[in-house]
Design a protein around this nucleic acid. Structure first.
Length: 935
RNA sequence: GGUCGCAUAGCUCAGUUGGUUAGAGCGCUUGCUUCACAUGCAAGAGGUCGCAGGUUCGAGUCCUGCUGCGACCACCA
């Protein structure tokens, strides 16, 4: 008995059970120890995260690759996991504490970290569960977290090795400081944003001649409290007489020198520049050159730090009490107010400039001098550049390679220490006795550690805490309070997740990983650093291919953001349209290197495709009416196939070939497109329609069982081809059509019965038949032309009519042999063939190649309409012919173009001429008839 | 300021080394209760390939300039 399935596909019923079944059956773990390894690591989402479109796209693409490779016989490993995301997570948890009126400072470090762990245990893996809904086939038995004990060992190991190789150092430097997060940031963690500000002009009077002075221009007047010089260009004629003299810094009344430095742009502002080495990167450099003092005027929260001014001559000045502990923006207001009072504020101009902000909280970054840990990056960058230059790592699309080189070549030392609590604490200890003088109490500041370790202190860097000081024999140590940049641990991800530093089997088998699929937004943050660390610590690249995909935007091309309210929630899309439709949409819109503009209608459109596939299946199941003599699996023999069979199998082979090529080169959109095109328009629109003639006996000579076998063969291959894109519906259908007792197929185990582990289709050469494709191409064109004529002549589909075909003998012979298709698909009562002599008088005309199609107008004498139509058609063809003839009359074209191109053009012109002739002949007849009929 | 990318149908985009009539999806128009599917079937309309030059027998495709949009990088106060 034929099996029945529902008329409409219901994703909610079909999708849900499969994931658990796959997972329980162990299909996601490496299953083919002898297969060629294919491995990927997931770009670990932040534990704080929840699934957004970016994740959905990223993981869909990865899953497509994994499922494809797994089916294709590879030993596939895809490692999932999450990132502890130091600052981001700490911020989230702190915000939650704040809602309960608590701060982490009140809690203390140990309790706070415990609290974050507890929070993570409770809520941290939401995103992984959301990923499962997407159908991702990660190996969950190998799930990792960047703060797992084993990964923490890897982090310490990496740190120690870099230290021992002289690639780490600790130094007091101006760094990007986020006063809100209370930590240093790396350069790339600062987002530069244009914003409207002001340029303030301030007079600095000469110390010995107060009536004279220099006017400086600044966007940050409050930093003047830390000025230690004023600089002018050495060749600036206006200021020659000031160079070497001293000005009196207003408010503080600090005497500071006027120095000459070519860095100063004479054109900008007044041409004299205030120098604040403590709070400006340029000024810091100039200060170093000129031996200027660095005065840090702020504390960790960017408030005026009174102790910074202890050394000022005027002692605990009266002005200081106004400024002490004032926030930098409040301080700015006060400074401006005071300068105004003193008549030293010359003018104010509106000014647009870039302001650096924290990438985690958007607070304006303060350049701030603090002791930090740095990675000496050049020695790491060099080999990383080479690896890409030499093609050992391919960046796809290669346009991104340029960005990669540009960044790597200008890279600066990487600040890896963070003054937060959530993360890997730096494995460096200080002997409390030896370093007593270098450990300073910082109670007058708000530093969260409560102390600071000067850059002179000698750290003991090792994996475990030391027990005895080698120098003094002391046993008490202070661990460096800083934690590592989150990206330090993610840089190790491709090997730390495989068990490094232990030499595990996984590492041996799966490193380097095959491909990394990621967004361009973390190319520098993550990809570049993985390459550097992989090369350094593993001595090998971390992955061969880097497949960079774009951002998901809304349909207007805007970034999706909560504040804009244009966020499309993947979970909502999945439940509304089905995961398969959603995944298919993402893939079909992913043209590498281009942003994905997502509109909900598209997803709805592909839901129809899923339904189409479902109904094709339904058709097949309904038409297996007779008991099968032989199992459907038996190979198809070329000699028993008819033209349509050979055609669809040839198209299937073509599609298989194209699909493989597309996916092999990460062209996900093409992959989806070829399969969509074939499934809907070739298989469903044409072949299934044609097969009905065999199945219902119209084609008496054809064997319906053979046709059923072709149908099932094609459907099964389509399912296999589509599975990476649409895992759920393909599995459901697969099991339905291959289930026990059905069609002679019997699976002996869960593993055998899942579509996930079937071999991915390969091109079967014997199915490629250009001759069948050409013939069916001709046949369908004729059918289309007839349908077109019918529509144009308002001939309803229900009315069966006769057409006359005028063609050369061989075409007629062919068309006669295919007449059942003509009649059924063009809805004809009969076909008349003429190879010479008179064409019908009263008929609508169309031309396909050398075949003329006449649709008699006896019953629908709409001569005027047909006349107009023909005129239009002739016009069109004549334009084309003219273009072709122009080419052919060009001597240069005839001599210089390739022979086959010229030959093609000749044939084309010939055909067009014939066509015009035919059309004109018909037109003449129509016009004659119109005259006969009278006005 | 530097670098890179993009501009093709109403919308979103394909278009491989230059070579028949530039394609798809969605949308639109018209007709159809055709025995898998109205989440459908059939037919159709719609494009000076951003602008201006150049190379070439031939340019959506290669080169130059311009315009517009976008991204990334950047210490000019």
């Amino acid at each position: 008995m034929p099996r029945q399935i529902d008329k409409a596909y219901s994703h909610s019923e079909v999708e849900s059970p499969w994931y658990a079944r796959w997972s329980e059956a162990g299909h996601f773990s490496p299953l083919r120890p002898n297969g060629h390894p294919f491995s990927m690591v997931i770009p670990p989402p932040n534990v704080t995260g929840s699934l957004h479109m970016g994740h959905a796209l990223n993981n869909t693409l990865q899953d497509i690759l994994c499922r494809y490779k797994r089916m294709d016989g590879y030993n596939v490993l895809w490692i999932p996991g999450t990132d502890h995301a130091g600052i981001a997570t700490q911020n989230v948890v702190e915000r939650q504490l704040a809602e309960r009126g608590m701060t982490r400072i009140q809690m203390g470090r140990e309790k706070f970290v415990e609290h974050v762990w507890a929070w993570r245990a409770e809520a941290g893996n939401t995103i992984l569960n959301q990923l499962k809904a997407l159908g991702v086939s990660c190996d969950w038995t190998r799930e990792r977290f960047t703060m797992d004990e084993r990964l923490s060992v890897a982090v310490r190991e990496a740190f120690v090795r870099l230290w021992e190789d002289g690639l780490l150092y600790r130094a007091e430097r101006l760094v990007n400081w986020c006063p809100r997060c209370g930590t240093a940031l790396a350069d790339i963690e600062v987002v530069h944003e244009e914003s409207d500000g002001h340029l303030w002009y301030i007079r600095y009077p000469l110390l010995d001649e107060p009536s004279e002075g220099l006017v400086v221009a600044t966007t940050r007047p409050e930093t003047m409290l830390g000025d230690t010089a004023v600089a002018v260009h050495p060749e600036d004629e206006r200021y020659q007489r000031f160079i070497g003299r001293k000005v009196c810094l207003p408010i503080v009344e600090r005497p500071i020198p006027v120095i000459a430095d070519p860095f100063v742009d004479q054109q900008f502002g007044t041409g004299s520049l205030k120098i604040t080495p403590g709070h400006d990167f340029n000024d810091f450099e100039i200060g170093e050159k000129h031996g200027l003092k660095v005065i840090g005027i702020f504390d960790d929260e960017a408030r005026i730090n009174p102790s910074a001014f202890r050394e000022e001559k005027t002692g605990p000045q009266s002005w200081l009490s106004r400024y002490a502990l004032k926030d930098r923006f409040e301080a700015r207001r006060l400074v401006l107010e005071e300068l105004e009072e003193k008549g030293l504020l010359v003018k104010r101009e509106p000014y647009r400039h870039a302001v650096g902000r924290c990438y985690r909280c958007s607070t304006v970054i303060e350049p701030y001098s603090t002791p930090q840990w740095f990675v000496k990056i050049k020695p790491l960058a060099e080999p990383a550049i080479q690896a890409v230059k030499e093609g050992r790592i391919r960046i796809i699309p290669d346009a991104w390679a340029n960005s990669y080189f540009a960044w790597m070549e200008n890279i600066k030392d990487w600040c890896i220490s963070r003054q937060i609590w959530w993360g890997h604490q730096i494995p460096a200890w200080y002997c409390k006795i030896c370093e007593a003088s270098n450990i300073t109490n910082q109670r007058d500041r708000t530093t969260t550690a409560g102390f600071r370790i000067t850059p002179e202190a000698k750290p003991i860097v090792q994996i475990r805490p030391p027990s005895v000081c080698a120098k003094c024999g002391g046993g008490e140590f202070l661990q460096d309070p800083d934690v590592l940049d989150t990206w330090f641990s993610s840089a190790l991800w491709p090997f730390s997740t495989l068990g490094w530093p232990e030499r595990t089997e996984d590492l041996k088998t799966f490193y380097p990983t095959s491909v990394l699929v990621t967004g361009f937004d973390i190319l520098f943050f993550w990809v570049a650093r993985m390459i550097m660390m992989g090369l350094k610590l593993m001595g090998d690249i971390p992955f061969r291919d880097v497949c960079i995909h774009a951002l998901v935007r809304d349909q207007e091309g805007q970034k999706m953001s909560k504040s804009k309210g244009n966020v499309i929630d993947p979970l909502v899309m999945m439940s509304r349209y089905g995961t398969d439709a959603f995944r298919f949409t993402l893939a079909s819109m992913t043209s590498i290197g281009r942003d994905v503009k997502l509109a909900e209608e598209r997803i709805a459109g592909y839901q129809n495709f899923v339904n189409k596939l479902w109904n094709a299946t339904r058709f097949l199941l309904m038409n297996v009416r007779i008991p099968l003599q032989e199992p459907l699996e038996s190979p198809l023999k070329t000699e028993e196939l008819n033209l349509a069979d050979r055609w669809i199998l040839s198209r299937l082979a073509f599609t298989t070939d194209q699909a493989r090529k597309a996916i092999d080169s990460y062209k996900f959109n093409e992959f989806a497109h070829y399969l969509y095109q074939f499934t809907w328009h070739e298989f469903c629109d044409w072949y299934i329609e044609m097969s009905k003639l065999s199945l219902n006996g119209t084609l008496r000579t054809d064997n319906p069982v053979k046709t059923q076998r072709v149908l099932f063969t094609v459907l099964k291959q389509v399912l296999l081809l589509l599975h990476p894109l649409m895992p759920f519906v393909t599995e459901e259908i697969w099991r339905t059509i291959t289930s026990e007792g059905q069609n002679g197929f019997s699976a002996t185990s869960e593993r055998e019965s899942s579509i996930m582990l079937q071999p991915y289709p390969k091109v079967d050469e014997k199915w490629i038949q250009p001759e069948a494709e050409e013939k069916v191409g001709f046949l369908t064109e004729v059918i289309r032309a007839i349908r077109n004529l019918r529509t144009e002549m308002n001939c309803p589909p229900s009315r069966k009519i006769e057409v006359v075909l005028f063609a050369p003998e061989n075409d007629i012979a062919f068309l006669k042999s295919q007449e059942p298709y003509l009649r059924a698909l063009a809805r004809l009562a009969s076909v008349k063939y003429i190879s010479q002599g008179e064409r019908p008088k009263k008929a609508a005309t169309a031309v396909v190649g050398t075949t003329e199609i006449y649709l008699p107008l006896t019953e629908m004498p709409n001569l005027r309409e047909e006349g107009m139509r023909l005129i239009k058609e002739v016009d069109k063809v004549e334009i084309e012919l003219a273009r072709s003839q122009k080419k052919l009359s060009n001597q240069d074209f005839l001599t210089k173009a390739k022979e086959e191109v010229v030959e093609k053009e000749r044939k084309k012109a010939e055909q067009l001429e014939d066509k015009i002739q035919t059309l004109n002949r018909s037109l003449k007849k129509i016009q004659d008839l119109q005259v006969e009929a009278g006005p």
